[in-house]
Design a protein around this nucleic acid. Structure first.
Length: 141
DNA sequence: GCCAACGTTGGC
DNA sequence: GCCAACGTTGGC
């Protein structure tokens, strides 16, 4: 299993909206960046991801799971753009802020810090464990 | 609201 | 295929 991070501006698509979709999940549409798309193409069913609120909040708020492999993005006719579906699994008991991530030396190489603008990012297993622990999930998610 | 970073576009 | 112009993202 691999780990990822999905960024969204809460104005456009918030964690609350994601959770409201329940187990059915939701297409992660609107991505128009090759690197982010390529990341989604490599995702497998059951991969886990963090849900991050950019702009407002600037914190990791929840855990999601990939529930549909990459497929054409229904919001465009442009065949270049694909996306996966994800569903909310659980809240982070304590949201982990960007400031906390930046303050943690072991997370210095995390994409959230080094590739600030990438909207779908890979997360290493070590980074996953550290952030889960910081977020109040010492057993992992 | 500003602005730096950076990805994309398009002229040559 | 280079690179300047432009648009967008996202932290502050």
């Amino acid at each position: 299993m691999r780990y990822w991070l999905f960024k969204s501006e809460p104005f456009k698509w918030s964690w609350e909206m994601q959770k409201a979709k329940g187990a059915a999940g939701q297409e992660w549409d609107g991505v128009r960046n090759y690197q982010a798309r390529n990341n989604m193409r490599t995702m497998q069913i059951g991969d886990r991801g963090f849900f991050y609120h950019s702009n407002e909040g600037k914190e990791i708020v929840g855990i999601v799971e990939v529930c549909e492999l990459a497929h054409p993005d229904s919001t465009t006719d442009d065949p270049r753009w694909e996306c996966v579906d994800i569903r909310a699994l659980r809240d982070l008991p304590r949201p982990v802020t960007l400031a906390e991530v930046k303050a943690e030396p072991r997370l210095a190489d995390m994409s959230l810090v080094t590739s600030m603008r990438l909207s779908v990012q890979p997360v290493t297993e070590e980074e996953w464990r550290i952030v889960c622990a910081m977020g109040g999930l010492p057993e992992g998610a």
